[in-house]
Design a binder for these strands. Structure first.
Length: 284
RNA sequence: GGCCAAGUGGCAGAAUGGUUAUGCAGAGGAUUGCAAAUCCUUGUAUAUCGGUUCGAUUCCGGUCUUGGCCU
């Protein structure tokens, strides 16, 4: 069985640096599993590895998507599997680095096949979850009593998914979950390297890093992206979810002063880090 | 020194003579195809002392603090 390394930890915990050192040491290649570093845009704000590092070590799956392209965990996993195999073919060790636990989880554990949901039904599901979540739950439960134990109503995310699948196919999501999970890669042993860091220390690093991003041109970068997509369309582009992007936009439109912008961006980064830590505690 | 107004949790901000909203922050959590997203749970307060009252954060008075005005 071949070995691949997975470096995972909260944002700003030093994964990139650790990965580089490890890649040098083991003669490895770095493969990205960060859902925003896959984009070409906002490289500064999303903390892409430096040009220098990228010249030194081969990096894969960074910046391969345009701002107007959408992805999902499964399509990333497909590409990642190909990238890993390619790395093995080069007789090197794949080192996966990133912060999107959901993505790496999909790759390692596979995912149940679920049919494509139409845009229409997807919107419908989201709407209903916002206006009348109770109703959404009861429709899902009505269809399948056994779901009550598996997807309790506090599992909001899964609940909406179950509803989507129901209105799209008329079938319970459980029927799809029953099938064996689709694996993207086999015969690979994933060795997990968890970045551990003290919470206070992490929060400090978040602030310093954001400060540096601003110095390195994060504001201009956001400005350029806004020119391309338009101020009113930011919600249609996942790349604009990058921490700091909305805050910088509000700074540019003078809704925030500099200090507010910095503060709110860092708060959002802390929330994100916290969610990552929660994920790591239970999911992997 | 005099007059007026205001004092609610870490911050913002409602309401009420008798179960003390809400938002943000903080803390914890969920998450099988949008995940840097989305969602859930949660502690802590009525400046202070006295009075009226069955009962006061709410009404009355003193004190303190803050802001404004006046001399």
């Amino acid at each position: 069985m071949k070995k691949a390394i997975v470096i995972i930890g909260p944002t700003a915990s030093g994964k990139t640096k650790y990965a580089i050192n490890l890649a040098k040491e083991l003669d490895g290649e770095i493969i990205n599993f960060d859902s925003l570093q896959i984009y070409k845009d906002l490289k500064i704000l999303t903390a892409h590895p430096s040009e220098e590092d990228q010249n030194l070590i081969k990096h894969k799956l960074f910046g391969y998507r345009n701002y107007n392209e959408k992805t999902d965990a499964a399509s990333w996993a497909r590409l990642a599997a190909a990238a890993i195999n390619e790395t093995f073919a080069e007789k090197k060790i794949p080192i996966l680095t990133g912060g999107t636990g959901f993505y790496i989880n999909t790759l390692i554990n596979g995912i149940s096949y679920l049919p494509q949901i139409s845009e229409e039904n997807r919107t419908k599901a989201i709407e209903l979850s916002k206006t009348n979540y109770e109703q959404l739950c009861s429709i899902v439960y009505q269809n399948s009593e056994s779901l009550k134990e598996i997807i309790t109503r506090d599992k909001h995310r899964q609940m909406i998914r179950a509803y989507e699948v129901l209105i799209e196919t008329g079938k319970s999501i459980l029927e799809f979950f029953k099938e064996p999970k689709k694996k993207f890669i086999s015969n690979v042993n994933f060795e997990i390297h968890l970045m551990k860091i003290d919470r206070d220390e992490l929060y400090k690093r978040i602030e310093i890093r954001f400060e540096n991003m601003l110095k390195n041109g994060a504001i201009e970068e956001v400005q350029n992206l806004i020119k391309k997509i338009g101020e009113n369309n930011i919600n249609n582009f996942p790349i604009f979810n990058a921490i700091g992007a909305k805050e910088i936009l509000l700074y540019l439109t003078r809704s925030y002063c500099l200090e507010q912008m910095k503060k709110l961006a860092c708060i959002r980064a802390r929330h994100y880090a916290k969610r990552q830590i929660t994920w790591l505690n239970h999911q992997l």
